[in-house]
Design a protein around this nucleic acid. Sequence first.
DNA 1: CGACGGGACGC
DNA 2: CGACGGGACGC
Length: 489
Amino acid sequence: MEDLGGSRPMANLDHPPNSRLFLVISKSTSEEVIRENFSFFGEIQDIWVVRDKQSKDHKGIAYVKFAKSSQACRAMEEMHGKALTEDTKPIKVFIAQSRGSGSHRDVEDEELTRIFVMIPKSYTEDDLRENFKEFGDIEYCSVIRNKGTGESKGFGYVRFLKPSQAAQAIENCERSFKAILAEPRNKPTYSENDYMSGTRQDPLSYGSGYDPPRGQTMFPFGEFTNFGTSEMRGGEMRAEIRSEMRGGENISTCLSVSTRGLLSHEQVYSLFDIIPGLEYCEIQRDPYMGYGKGYAIVRYSNVASAVYAKEKLHGFEYPPGNRLGVSYIEGDSGDRRSNPVGMMALQLVAAQMMTLACNSPVGQQMMPTSPGHGGSSSTQMSRLQVGFSLPAPQNFAPSDSTVRERLFVVFNPTVLPLDILEDLFCRFGNLIEVYLVPGRNIGYVKYAERHSATNALDTLHGKVVNGIKLKVMLADPPREESHKRQRTH
DNA sequence: CGACGGGACGC
DNA sequence: CGACGGGACGC
């Protein structure tokens, strides 16, 4: 029905998994009404109202394809059981079965709330919880251990309360976790009695309009990772603030934050608390505007912090697709400092940024960190020190991208931490993965585009990064395939 | 109860 | 001169 891009048909109805909804609706409900009610939750790629092939009769069924599973899950959670119009019955909303499955069984929450993750052997359940709590309400975490020795097997499970929370964890957690939905632990022996025991959430109890998702956070800081890295030195920040001041706006310590989507106090607070000096945060929600609109007020202890917060967060998408609007508002009373920005305040902010970006929960998301290195609770500064210029960080390629080129990297005298390497190699675009060979000073870097790999090679070969010398070469094909076509030099 | 369409060519 | 990973659970 819909292909707004026009140029290309939709990639795949089953991709990413669990991004398509199955709706049971009134036969009088139009595609437009569906769109009006569901576009709030994210990018709709396709809406299909099912009709009888011959008679064209509305069958009371529709499919809605979202770009992301988390969007589909949120829509399901919030719209299930709602009446779209006053004269129609409450609708039912489920994650659609994948197209080839042939199954018409409802997809249960059980299958959508537990994720399977790879973790360092040293990880405990508490470490897991610390790393995943930002994505939502965790029911439990488990680390699978060898029964005899108690040693971790290097993987674990995290159960969230809501499907959207698990989906967000999968979409946004560190790639080294390799998070995927866990298979239900009892093999498909569907004894229909098992889930009647009442321990799981009844789908109909989804957001009844008064229970918006809580604790849900999503930190799409892909273009934001230069925050606190070598890209963000104090001098640059001072220049940034000065240019901001030339804009002629009425700067103040108080900001208003407008948002289309729902944001909790915790979300706004933790987002703006990245910038030091946050003193106050308050959510304003107009009850008559329903879910669509809201705004928050935040105040900093000094103008420099407010200026910086506005500069960095105005127009920022949080969550993705929800563009924040940040502007100055009159602070209460004469708190406004007519003597605006002293160099001391600026330098203070610049210095604190370096530290706090690493210590705040949100700040950690902005920094490439790795669960595989440096232990669980210790966060390390991932800052690149190089004697040459580097492009800005870029987003990774989708994790299921085809590997188009691979680099082989030798480190001397020792390897660099994985998070540093990801920060480094992502700057040429289309990075899929950095893999370090355990116990060796070598690694492989996978790219989804050849030009990204060759740019990285040209820029980095023979260079010194954080005191470590790199040799960067095109990797030979993996051994397994060598029998196909032996490259005899 | 309530499960799968339509569109489609540039080299 | 260094060359190649890992994935399923104690109700």
